[in-house]
């Protein structure tokens, strides 16, 4: 797996497939990027589980926080890692102890650990590194363009309007291969 560049079909497939996302390193501080991601993914109807030992038993953006991945009371489809590249190894090792295994390990922007990625991929777990699921979702659904940000997606299909006026989903055809 080439981790320098991901096809949009790979990223869209992951965001379409997973339902439950554990966010390791989620912050309760409402101006931190990890809080933004938790809040945004909840608004896209994911079951988001913040993981933060300093905040366990309390809510972040309305979601109950757990102290560790192994404490979580339900199967996790994707583990999103808000820790530095070195610390990502420990998180991946813990994630690979889960039963059932998560389908996806996702490391945030600036987080990359190729050794940990190999461990996960050897067990058939998909890996994304150095990306943000909020940005990727907003890019693929078209919402990010509202902020003048280049989505790098072109499509002759209209965005999928979710509930309300200002929420898009990601299921549509785009120019292939992007």
């Amino acid at each position: 797996m080439n981790h320098e560049r991901y096809d949009d079909t790979y990223i869209r497939g992951i965001l379409d497939e997973v339902k439950t996302i554990a966010v390791v390193g989620a912050s309760a501080n409402t101006v931190r990027p990890s809080y933004f991601v938790v809040k945004y993914l909840i608004s896209k109807d994911y079951d988001v589980i913040p993981v933060n030992p300093g905040h366990s038993g309390r809510e972040i953006a309305g979601a109950m926080t757990f102290a560790s991945l192994t404490d979580i009371d339900r199967p996790v489809d994707m583990v999103d890692i808000f820790r530095n590249s070195e610390a990502a190894m420990g998180v991946v090792e813990e994630a690979l102890e889960l039963d059932p295994l998560p389908k996806v390990i996702w490391m945030q922007l600036s987080v990359r650990n190729d050794e940990a990625a190999k461990l996960a991929e050897a067990k058939g777990v998909k890996v994304v590194m150095n990306r943000c699921p909020k940005i990727e979702y907003a890019r693929l659904c078209g919402e990010i363009g509202w902020a003048g940000v280049a989505s790098n997606v072109i499509s002759a299909r209209k965005p999928k309007l979710q509930q309300g006026f200002q929420r898009f989903g990601i299921n549509r055809h785009t120019k292939a291969g992007q």
């Binding site: 809040k39 945004y40 907003a138 919402e143 509930q163 309300g164 006026f165 200002q166 929420r167």
Partner: peptide, 17 residues
């Protein structure tokens, strides 16, 4: 759409107009 979305927009937490 609702008050929560309005707050998220003003706080730059969500994309929208």
């Amino acid at each position: 759409d609702d008050v929560d979305q309005a707050a998220a927009l003003f706080g730059l937490q969500a994309f929208g107009n």
